[in-house]
Each structure stands twice: as C-alpha cells, then as structure tokens.
C-alpha cells in the first residue's frame, strides 16, 4: 500500500435511512459525521419502493427504517418488503416514540432492533455497529475522548 493510501479508512459501511421526513435525513447525517474509520456512506430515501430500488443498485450494510412511512404504512408492511428484496443485513426500526406494546412484534417482521430517534447518538451508533455488523465495522467516534 502506498503512503498516500495509509490514512484511508480500512473499511466502509453503507447505511440506508428510510424516512419520509427530510429533516431527519439531515439530523442523521450530522449524527454520523464524527465516524471516519470505517467511513460511513449514508443513503437517504423517503419511501419503501425507492428503498427497494436502492438495494437493487447499491450494496447496503444496514437499514434504519422509520416506523411510519407515507402512505399509512408501518414496519409490519415495510420491513418484509426489504426482506422480500433479498436484504439480509440488519434492519433497525426507528421512531420518535418507540415505546409501547405496538412494537413488541418487531422480530417477527424481520426487524433486528428498535431505537427512539432521540436515543440515537455516538454511543448508540457505536454499540449498533459492534452488535449488528461485528467488530470489523466498529468505530470510535472522532469526538469521543481518546
């Protein structure tokens, strides 16, 4: 490897965010901004059909799926569509309020984990990367101490 390449990330993680609220795309991008090794490539789409098309064209390591997508779809309809498209990576269900019995069936619909949008920070992302993508993709956020 040449010296010019030595500072390049050793691996790359591609995350797809499916959320019909564009402001969430920006917020999520900011939360991932501190991660550099591995580098995180973020794809953002607003609906499940576009997400399925995205999967056909790009390799994706993990999906963060907003619970409610227009028109009136929830994870019970959207997550199976991602699995039907052949995606076998982790799917995380996100919502502004992830509490309540309503979400208890998430494993039955091919979802791997759930987390409230306000709970997502550098610590949570680090844990998620380690837990669901393995240590090869685990990162310490640049703004973490040490």
């Amino acid at each position: 490897m040449s010296e010019a390449n030595s500072d390049k990330p050793t691996s790359m993680v591609t995350i797809l965010l499916v959320d019909d609220d564009q402001s969430e795309h920006l917020l999520f991008e900011r939360k991932l901004a501190g991660f550099s090794n591995p580098a995180i490539a973020l794809g953002c789409v607003e609906d499940i059909d576009t997400a399925v098309r995205f999967l056909e064209n790009e390799p994706v390591d993990m999906i963060f799926l907003d619970n409610r997508l227009t028109p009136r779809m929830d994870f019970r309809e959207t997550a199976p569509k991602l699995r039907d498209a052949g995606f076998t990576g982790p799917i995380g269900l996100i919502s502004s309020d992830i509490t309540g019995d309503y979400f208890q069936s998430f494993p039955d619909f091919g979802v791997d984990f759930r987390i409230g949008k306000d709970e997502i920070d550098a610590q949570a992302i680090t844990f998620i990367m380690s837990e669901f993508l393995g240590k090869r993709f685990e990162n310490s956020c640049d703004d973490d101490p040490n």
């Binding site: 509490t99 979400f103 984990f113 987390i115 409230g116 837990e131």
Partner: peptide, 26 residues
C-alpha cells in the same frame, strides 16, 4: 422525561434483545 425514565417504566418488561438492554442501562 421519557428518555430519563425509560429504564423504570414498562419498557423494562418489553426488553427483548441486547439492544433493548443497552437502551435501558444507558
């Protein structure tokens, strides 16, 4: 308020996997 009490509410009994417990301890 919801986040600060997540670990003492009903979510404790709804925890299913390690991610849920990460959220509770956090």
């Amino acid at each position: 308020e919801r986040n600060s009490t997540l670990h003492v509410g009903d979510e404790l009994h709804r925890a299913l996997n390690r991610m849920d417990f990460f959220r509770l301890f956090k």
